[in-house]
Amino acid sequence: MTTKPWYEDLFENYANKYDSESFTQGTKGECDFIERELQSNKTLKIIDVGCGTGRHTIELTKRGYSVTGIDLSASQLKKAREKAATENLDIDFRQQDARNITLKNEFDVAIMLCEGGFPLMETDEMNFEILKSVTEALKAKGKFVFTTLNGLFPLFNSVEKFLAAEGKEGNATYRDNSFDLMTFRDHNVTEFEDDDGNKKVIASNERYYVPSEITWLLKSIGYRNIDIFGAKLGAFSRNDKLTTKDFEMLVIAEL
């Protein structure tokens, strides 16, 4: 039995497979939204937290933005650097823990999309450390755009059925989901095949948040304007009011 946290185990040798997962297919549309939020201001410095294989970092760099990508996983970063090299892009990818980002007051904008660290941590305190650490990486009037799991969804819907319907052949599968009303954590057994074709089974759990929690957490670390919307894959929009049918929520916060 592994002693690593489940998310480290998952991403250890999963970079190629990760890029074919259904939830990673909305990159261009999501970057369109980021551009609209930034009013296409290419002087802004961006940090992509939990950048994975670099899909948003690379797409935004191609569009002329200055982006630094950080991730905990060496194998995800290796894939990101390879992808950047094939596009002849010089991108600063760094292996960093989102709970302890060493870059302080450097960025105008932080993005953290597709559960890039938050809300995967073992405790609420660790998840909060990520929000604080990202905030410390921002300049005084910084903006933070991220997606996270919508705690309203599992109260009205089956997470297991949703994930089964969204997946496709070759993707990771999830079973034995149980949602804990006291902690708002969904526990499940995740089965997947790594990049070497090895079948792996891990016990994972993710924290779902309700909008009022996110608002309170962000206000407590200095954000003044906080907007929360439904997050539709590849089509983020301020026009999508958050509902119980949204699996994820889109958070836009300004210091």
Rank of each mutant, 00 (worst) to 15 (best):
E129Y: 03
K232D: 06
E136D: 10
R185N: 00
I252L: 09
G197W: 11
E30S: 12
F33L: 01
C114H: 04
N88P: 01
I70P: 00
D92E: 08
K79M: 13
E166Y: 11
H56C: 05
M121L: 14
L138P: 02
S75C: 13
V201Y: 01
E254M: 13
S178M: 02
R185W: 08
K83C: 14
I228L: 06
L72F: 09
L60V: 14
L10S: 01
E59W: 07
R238F: 06
L38T: 11
Q39A: 12
L217S: 14
S204A: 12
Y14A: 01
R175A: 14
I202Y: 04
K28L: 07
S237A: 08
Y18Q: 03
R224H: 14
N16E: 10
E59M: 07
V49K: 03
L155I: 14
S133P: 07
D180R: 02
M1Y: 11
G26H: 09
P5T: 03
I130F: 01
D108Q: 08
D227I: 11
Y14G: 02
N88G: 04
C114F: 09
V67W: 05
M121Q: 08
D186E: 11
F153N: 02
K199E: 10
D240N: 15
Y223S: 00
D240A: 04
G117N: 12
V109M: 10
L10H: 05
K45P: 11
C31Q: 00
T190I: 10
E12L: 06
K83L: 15
L152Q: 08
K17C: 07
F118G: 14
Y7L: 12
Y174H: 06
L131C: 12
I221G: 00
V67G: 07
R207V: 00
D240T: 07
I226H: 01
I58A: 02
F128M: 14
D19L: 06
I228H: 04
G117E: 13
Y18G: 07
Y7R: 14
S73R: 08
N198Y: 09
T43I: 10
S20G: 01
A164N: 11
F236K: 03
Y223M: 02
K28M: 13
E12G: 03
G50T: 03
K62T: 12
V189S: 13
T86S: 13
